[in-house]
Each structure stands twice: as C-alpha cells, then as structure tokens.
Design a protein around this nucleic acid. Sequence first.
DNA 1: CTCTTGACGCCGG
DNA 2: TCCGGCGCCAAGA
Length: 115
Amino acid sequence: MPSYSATMTCMDDEYAEAVLQIVESIPPGRVMTYGAIADVVGASLGRGGPRQVGSVMSHDGGGVPWWRVVRADGRGARGHEIRARELWLAEVTPLHPDGDRVDLRRAAWSPEHAG
DNA sequence: CTCTTGACGCCGG
DNA sequence: TCCGGCGCCAAGA
C-alpha cells in the first residue's frame, strides 16, 4: 500500500455524506432548516455551519429530497422556490396561508423526533 | 495572503 | 411584512 488508504474518503466527503444522509431521512411532508441540519452534523463532526450545508446541497443535493430543506423563515432554497412549492403541495406539506413558506411549527422535523 | 462569493441566519428600521 | 446590514465559515480566484 503506497499510501495510507486508497478507500479513504476525504473529510470533506465525510461532511457531505452526513448532510445528505440526514436530508434523506426527512419524511415526506416534513422539513428541516439549513441551521438545524448544520447543528446536527456539527454535533457529530464538530464543524460546519448553515452555509456549509447550503454549499453541499448546491453541489450534490440533486440526489436527495432537497425541497425538504428550507431556510429559517420557511422559504425554499434560493433560486428554487417555485419548484419547491410544487413539491410541497404534492406531499401535502403544512404551508402558511400565502403558500410560499412552510409552516415550521407544524412541518419542522428532527432526527431525534423519529426516535 | 487578500478579496469575493454563496441553496444561510439574526437583528433593527 | 419587506429590506438592508452584518456575522459566519469554507472554497475559489
């Protein structure tokens, strides 16, 4: 073995994996904010913030239910509000009367909430 | 090394 | 409620 480990996934990929795994665990009709995800991942890996979660989603969020990740005010991902709204409707996600924001008081979810 | 950018968040007006 | 400003943290130019 020339190097330490050929299968070593870099720490960056480790962080991205953690974020994506959490997003996949969000049930239909429920959501998590970037900050909440950053908090959970941060508690495990000890680093990263809301912006890092957004960075991961932007780069590799296509394979996960990205519309279940919302901003702290309940709005969808920047630049994808329209698409997100349609998907929320399809999942019957609790929305505010205006329909542009998720009602976090009813839709907010957390991994611990499941257990 | 410095400056800018980004799927963010909180506060004040 | 809408808007602007500032803080935050990592990546890229």
